[in-house]
Simulated assay, not measured.
Amino acid sequence: MDFWKGKNVLVTGCTGFLGSYLTKELENKGANVVGLVRDLIPNSNLYSDPKISNVCMVNGSLEDLEIIERALGEHEIDTVFHLAAQAIVGVANRNPISTFKANIMGTWNILEACRRSPLVKRVIVASSDKAYGDQEHLPYDEDMPLQGNHPYDVSKSCADLLAQTYYHTYRLPVCITRCGNLYGGGDLNFNRIIPQTIKSVLDGKAPVIRSDGTFIRDYFYVEDAVSAYLLLAEKMESLNLQGEAFNFSNEIQINVKELVQKILDLMGSELKPIVLNKGENEIKHQYLSSKKAMESLNWYPNFNIEEGLIKTISWYKNFIEKGLR
């Protein structure tokens, strides 16, 4: 608790899925949180907490370096969590340029602004397991090359390498996180498989699987991600971790069909999923090793897939019962 008390922290993407949870936890720990917000998201999970009134909102986009520099300077920022991104694979395939601008240009703007700010002591950049691309051997570990092939994957590979560049060239105190597919209550991107499936069941409709259902992913509960981000930021200076990347995962492997069926079972539904078999420009099989985080940080996830899904289903039931969509 004492580590964050009174610290000035910038969170990009604070109204997003992970950002809303991280912002609320930082507030609970006594930090002074500044959020960089491009678009108003009225139903953001962030606004469910009355403490949101304590968060200072800076309106601007990642592509605007001057806005970022002003936010860092005027609010005397000590720590930066760079979470904001265009995070939908399908959108990236349709609109690669806007994705590259947000995810690549946006990252170099954050890093450059932090480099110029004398008060910034730690920066956490959110990369992704997608940055590894398609690898012959699994699980992914932090020593593997970054080799995304498709627009979203490439944008995360580039952002990740930029963070490494700013450490090796300028000694910027930055660490990189690579997480599996985040899930939990508050994800308002209903084209993602978990919120889409839950919403479909609550609406009495068959869930839709875009791919053939055999894609294997590593699903990671959002509250575990928050604990990972905070612990890494807290320990990066004392353990001299600057410039390093960490995988965070509960190291499960589950394909989309199995995941959807698990949700249907937990919700007591007899609906059968519709399989479109239209997935493209996606990696077939992904999962991470968290050995480094467990050994270096003594970090371990608190939720297994069933526990995380039960909490997630409960959140969406409450959300939809309130007439929100």
Rank of each mutant, 00 (worst) to 15 (best):
L161Y: 12
S314Y: 12
N45C: 04
I305H: 12
E306H: 04
R171D: 07
I68L: 13
Y287N: 11
D134Y: 08
T312K: 07
R171A: 10
K5C: 02
L202S: 08
Y221W: 11
H75N: 15
R70F: 12
Y167G: 06
P96M: 02
S48G: 12
W315M: 12
H137F: 06
I252G: 07
S98A: 13
F220L: 06
E74V: 03
H150Y: 15
D39T: 12
A87P: 02
L119E: 11
C56V: 08
K24E: 11
S127M: 09
E251D: 11
K322E: 15
V222N: 15
V275F: 10
Y167R: 10
E112G: 03
I252N: 13
P173T: 06
V33A: 09
T177E: 00
L65Y: 13
P96E: 07
F3D: 00
Y167T: 05
V222R: 14
K322C: 09
A225L: 01
F190T: 06
E76C: 07
E76K: 15
H137D: 01
H137I: 02
G35D: 08
H137G: 00
N45W: 01
A225E: 11
G13K: 02
S249M: 03
T12V: 05
I124R: 07
L36Y: 04
G19S: 06
P301L: 00
E234N: 04
V89S: 02
K156C: 00
E142V: 08
E76N: 15
A31H: 09
N103W: 08
S53D: 11
I320N: 12
A163L: 13
N181C: 10
V80P: 13
K130S: 10
I124V: 13
N59T: 15
W315F: 08
D39K: 11
I310A: 10
E244P: 01
Y132M: 04
H150W: 13
L146V: 05
L232S: 06
L26S: 10
N149C: 10
L202Y: 00
H285W: 05
R116Q: 00
C179V: 11
E27V: 04
T214N: 07
G204I: 04
L119K: 15
P50D: 14
P42W: 10
L232V: 15
A233D: 06
P139H: 12
L202T: 01
G180E: 02
N149W: 07
N45G: 07
A131H: 06
I283T: 07
S61N: 12
D49K: 03
V125Q: 11
D39Q: 03
I209V: 14
P42R: 12
D49G: 05
N103F: 05
V201W: 05
E270F: 11
N250K: 01
A131Y: 03
A84Y: 08
Y170Q: 13
G73Y: 02
G148A: 09
N318T: 00
R115S: 01
L266N: 06
W315K: 09
